[in-house]
Design a protein around this nucleic acid. Sequence first.
DNA 1: CCGAACATACCGACTGGTTAGTCTGGCGGT
DNA 2: ACCGCCAGACTAACCAGTCGGTATGTTCGG
Lengths: 197, 197
Amino acid sequence: MPRTTDGDGTPVPQRLLAAATRLFAERGYDRTSVQEIVEAAGVTKGALYHYFGSKDDLLHEVYARVLRVQQERLDAFADADEPVEKRLRDAAADVVVTTIENLDDASIFFRSMHHLSPDKNRQVRAERRRYHERFRALIEEGQRTGVFTKETPADLVVDYHFGSIHHLSTWYRPDGPLSKQEVADHLADLLLRALRP
Amino acid sequence: MPRTTDGDGTPVPQRLLAAATRLFAERGYDRTSVQEIVEAAGVTKGALYHYFGSKDDLLHEVYARVLRVQQERLDAFADADEPVEKRLRDAAADVVVTTIENLDDASIFFRSMHHLSPDKNRQVRAERRRYHERFRALIEEGQRTGVFTKETPADLVVDYHFGSIHHLSTWYRPDGPLSKQEVADHLADLLLRALRP
DNA sequence: CCGAACATACCGACTGGTTAGTCTGGCGGT
DNA sequence: ACCGCCAGACTAACCAGTCGGTATGTTCGG
């Protein structure tokens, strides 16, 4: 097999994805040239276009990876054998922690959706909706069983919470006074308090 | 005086700003060419570069307009002669309504900050911080006087609330089931309930 | 009251530079 | 000898900003 890794041990496609993620987050999609990506990954355009169909495709892969990971984690928490208020709290706090751990992904996510081609955009939106609906189902369950207030529609609560999560990348600083776990606990508290009957 | 308006009655600079706002929101800053802007405004490049120093400058004007309006409105509500919980509620609901009324501005705001030149970026951040601090002061006042819980740091609450407001443009649909006033009331309720001791 | 000098508002062709994507070819393993 | 993997020069397109030019209005000396 011709070498799929270089001086570094990680395979070329992953190196490209990592470099693209960092650069997209740093400079934005349009301001990042394909040339810069391949240089950061230590390869050339030939390699990139061997593994990815287009620059747009590369961006799409970033989204796919994020969505897959988040969905898996949410499912795990939502399916746990716990009272609904604990399941929601755990899920809400977890998404904060994983978002902080991948702040680059987060800033790309909310800034670059419109750079995807129309059908890839639809695809991402659909996956995103699945995610939101799972989260909403948790809230609705709590509303039915009376542990959460019914005053605010569940989907509005979801949008409220995820709006703030998407914006973590604009204000959270790893060297700030709060650890990611502390932020996660606070945000989960805010959500749960807002849902208190 | 040479004519500053054309067939349309509105002056050229405002027409350019309006066209740019719409196109930036629709396609993004980098994907919008100066040529498209001037065509949409019914003028040519000469006119644009007569009134604005650069494309970047045009974007900066969009930010300046938004920030000025929002700050004025917040100040009016915050200075009112009312109990702090009403002042906060009114301010929180108002920013939702005005954001919905200018959804284009909102999507530009949170997507295009990084397209501003470094010093214009700093300028916008500084103004933004002033705004946040005024809002935070309201919350801290309520925390001191005991009408709001002290459990969550005030600045975190501010970021929480404005995160969701910046994201209104991604999910709010004018033809959806909720009017802008209803959404505003719900989001203000969520904030106030989260702050309840 | 008039006309020359000046100022403002705009036009649109042009330039220098950048970019995504292509293509030919070579290298190394099987 | 074949094929996956990749190098890197090349192309066609695009774009921000410039610049000389025109048209319309204003100022002011005589």
